[in-house]
C-alpha cells in the first residue's frame, strides 16, 4: 500500500493546529485543540487501512472493500471525543463561573516551591527544623495564596 499524500498533509496540519491551541491557557482554546488533534489522530488511524468501497457485505466484492478495523476504532474514538468535549466545556464554564475566566492557572504550591528554590531555601518544614515559616503560613494563608496566585497569572 502506498501512502496517500493528501491524508499525510491533512494529518500534519490538523496536528500542528491542534497542538498550537493545546498549548494555550484558555480552556476553550485547549478544547478546540483537542478536537482538531482528535480529528488528526483519527485520520492517522485511517491511513493504516486502504480505501475502497463501504465494508458492507454484498455491496462490493471483498477485495474492493475499505479496511473495516480502523473504522471501528475511529468510530469509538469519535464518540469518546464527544464525551470529552462535553466534560471540558463544563469545566471551562465552571472555571469561568468561579474565577471570571476560563484559563488554566499555574499550580500555586508549585509556584511556592519555585520561589523557595530561587531564594535557595529549604522547605522549612517544622519537623526538619530549619525555620518557623509554616506557622506564618498558617497564620495568614489567604495572603500568601493570593500573592502566589497573582504570580501564577502573571507568569
Amino acid at each position: 500500500m502506498t501512502p496517500n499524500l493528501t491524508y499525510v498533509i491533512v494529518v500534519g496540519v490538523l496536528v500542528a493546529a491542534g497542538v498550537t491551541l493545546l498549548l494555550e491557557r484558555s480552556l476553550t482554546r485547549v478544547l478546540m485543540g483537542v478536537i482538531l488533534l482528535g480529528n488528526g489522530a483519527n485520520l492517522l488511524l485511517l491511513t493504516g487501512g486502504r480505501a475502497g468501497a463501504p465494508p458492507i457485505v454484498g455491496g462490493a466484492p471483498q477485495e474492493e472493500m475499505s479496511d473495516p478495523l480502523p473504522q471501528a476504532m475511529i468510530l469509538t474514538a469519535i464518540v469518546i471525543t464527544l464525551g470529552m468535549t462535553a466534560f471540558l466545556l463544563a469545566l471551562a464554564y465552571r472555571s469561568w463561573h468561579l474565577n471570571g475566566h476560563d484559563e488554566v492557572q499555574d499550580d500555586v504550591e508549585d509556584r511556592r516551591i519555585m520561589d523557595l528554590a530561587e531564594r535557595d531555601e529549604g522547605p522549612g518544614d517544622a519537623d526538619a527544623g530549619t525555620g518557623d515559616d509554616d506557622d506564618d503560613a498558617e497564620a495568614d494563608p489567604e495572603r500568601s495564596l493570593t500573592a502566589s496566585a497573582d504570580a501564577g497569572r502573571a507568569g
Binding site: 496517500n4 499525510v8 500534519g12 497542538v19 498550537t20 491551541l21 492517522l44
Partner: peptide, 22 residues
C-alpha cells in the same frame, strides 16, 4: 514557541503517517 512546537509535532506526525502507511 507554541506555534513552533505545534508545527514540529505536526511534521513529525505527518512523517509517521507517511512511513506507517508504506
Amino acid at each position: 514557541g507554541r506555534v513552533a512546537i505545534g508545527v514540529a509535532v505536526g511534521v513529525v506526525t505527518a512523517g509517521m503517517a507517511y512511513v506507517a502507511a508504506g
